[in-house]
């Protein structure tokens, strides 16, 4: 259980409480500046709230040794930076840094991550020679190689075309099915509606809705938070937004 208790960061979060369950895909939605990335960084233990706390299985995240926290929570930042021209395999290997295990165990975890994301054929390719979609998968493989119990990703789909978005979502869904807790900051409301188990809506640093996508992203919420008069069309799981 990953939980936030009355997180306060002046100007960014005003008392956000939240309990996340493993095995679920949770989407954090909200307009620009709503505090989505800040909430995610707090849940990852990277940003300290002024008051309130983030808890992992009841333990204060801020009090955990950084490497223990890193083994439990994988974090994929919004900026997909890779400073040096390493191979896909080496990149995924960076996810093993908090583990300090032997080379065999590290190689096995990297192999498993590359296999799960269909990256084995690209294992020796330099990251500069990857397409956008391959690069996003390689960065996700870096997180999965660390075998975290939680995966927190800040807009992992932002720079991808539709086909790659759906492919990456399928991979994330598979992670959740394997028992991982998956938390995504998503801008695309239709993707959140159709692919998340649960949606958390933030506005101006306040939690305004939290629940199944149908309820949390209902038309009144869209009007109140985003200020748009929009309607959901289609069947559950295949919804489209008409503005």
């Amino acid at each position: 259980m990953l939980a936030a208790e009355s997180l306060v960061l002046p100007g960014r979060l005003h008392g956000v409480s939240l309990r996340l369950r493993p095995g679920e895909v949770t989407a954090i939605c909200g307009p620009n500046g709503a505090g989505k990335s800040t909430l995610l960084a707090c849940l990852a233990g990277l940003t300290l709230p002024q008051s309130g706390a983030a808890l992992l299985d009841g333990a204060l995240l801020a009090a955990m040794p950084p490497e223990a926290r890193a083994r439990a929570i994988g974090y994929l930042p919004q900026v997909a930076e890779v400073a040096w021209d390493v191979s896909v395999q080496t990149l995924a290997g960076l996810g093993r840094l908090p583990w300090r295990t032997g080379a065999t165990e590290d190689a096995a975890a990297v192999d498993a991550a590359l296999t799960a994301l269909d990256l084995l054929p690209l294992a020796y390719r330099p990251v500069t020679q990857l397409s956008g979609g391959e690069r996003a998968r390689a960065l996700l493989a870096r997180v999965l190689a660390g075998t975290p119990r939680w995966l927190l990703a800040d807009e992992p789909l932002a720079s991808l075309d539709l086909a790659h978005q759906l492919a990456l979502l399928a991979h994330l869904r598979a992670c959740a099915a394997a028992g991982m807790g998956v938390v995504l900051v998503l801008h695309d409301l239709a993707l959140a509606m159709n692919h998340a188990d649960r949606v958390v809506v933030l506005d101006h640093g306040n939690l305004v809705a939290d629940g199944p996508p149908d309820l949390a992203l209902s038309e009144p919420v869209l009007a109140q938070v985003w200020g748009v008069n929009a309607r959901w069309l289609g069947e559950p799981g295949q919804r489209a937004l008409a503005v």
Binding site: G45, A70, P77, L97, G146
Partner: peptide, 20 residues
């Protein structure tokens, strides 16, 4: 060296990997 390796992914990702 380990810390520098982690920084390859940027400061935020490096901290999420346990870098001090």
């Amino acid at each position: 060296g380990r810390g520098l390796d982690a920084l390859t992914l940027g400061e935020a990702a490096a901290r999420s990997l346990g870098l001090d």
